[in-house]
Computed example of a mutant assay.
Amino acid sequence: MMEIIDKSSHALVTEYSVGDVIRDDVSVYMIVQITIDNYAVVDLGDGSVGAVCGSLEELYHEIHVSGERKVKAAVVIEGEAK
């Protein structure tokens, strides 16, 4: 499970980095590296993989929309106590 911390005061996105969690008007997604030379966007709502590009710059230019904001996210690992 991933917990998204969004106080709507985060900086506007001007470039992507691997691991960034981005929120726009429709969804929340993460920037990932899927191979040594390919990057993609993963929708955190349904797990679907969107655009795949050869560089972070290309990915940004392909999918960036005005109003995107980087948000803080934390992975929460749940399990049974032993």
Rank of each mutant, 00 (worst) to 15 (best):
D6P: 00
V76N: 07
A11W: 01
K82T: 11
E57P: 01
Y60F: 15
I5P: 02
G45D: 15
E62G: 02
H10T: 12
L44Y: 02
V49S: 12
Y29D: 10
D24S: 10
K70V: 12
V49L: 12
V32W: 00
A40V: 10
I31S: 06
I34K: 04
S9I: 14
S55P: 06
E80P: 06
K72N: 13
D46Q: 06
M2C: 08
H61Q: 14
Y16W: 05
D43K: 08
D6F: 03
K70Q: 07
L44D: 00
V76P: 04
V76D: 05
Y16M: 04
T35N: 03
L59M: 02
L59N: 03
G45P: 08
L56C: 09
E80I: 07
N38Q: 15
D37T: 09
V71C: 01
T35C: 00
S55M: 10
M2K: 15
E78S: 11
D46P: 00
K7G: 05
V18L: 09
V75S: 08
V26N: 13
D6K: 05
V13H: 01
Y39Q: 03
I77V: 11
H10A: 11
E58K: 10
G45F: 14
E58Q: 11
D46V: 06
G47M: 09
G47R: 10
G79L: 06
L44K: 01
A81N: 04
Y60L: 10
A81M: 08
Y60I: 09
S27Q: 07
E58A: 12
N38F: 12
D37Q: 13
A11L: 11
C53V: 06
T35S: 11
V49P: 02
L44V: 01
D43E: 10
K7C: 09
E68M: 15
S48R: 14
V52D: 05
G50F: 04
E57W: 00
S17M: 03
V28C: 08
S48T: 15
S9T: 14
I31A: 07
L12T: 09
I34H: 01
V71F: 02
A40E: 05
L44H: 03
L56K: 08
E58H: 10
I77E: 12
R23A: 06
A11V: 06
M1D: 14
E15I: 07
G50K: 06
M2D: 13
V32L: 02
A11M: 07
D46M: 01
G19P: 00
K82N: 11
A51R: 15
V28S: 04
K7D: 12
R23V: 05
V21N: 00
H64V: 07
S9C: 13
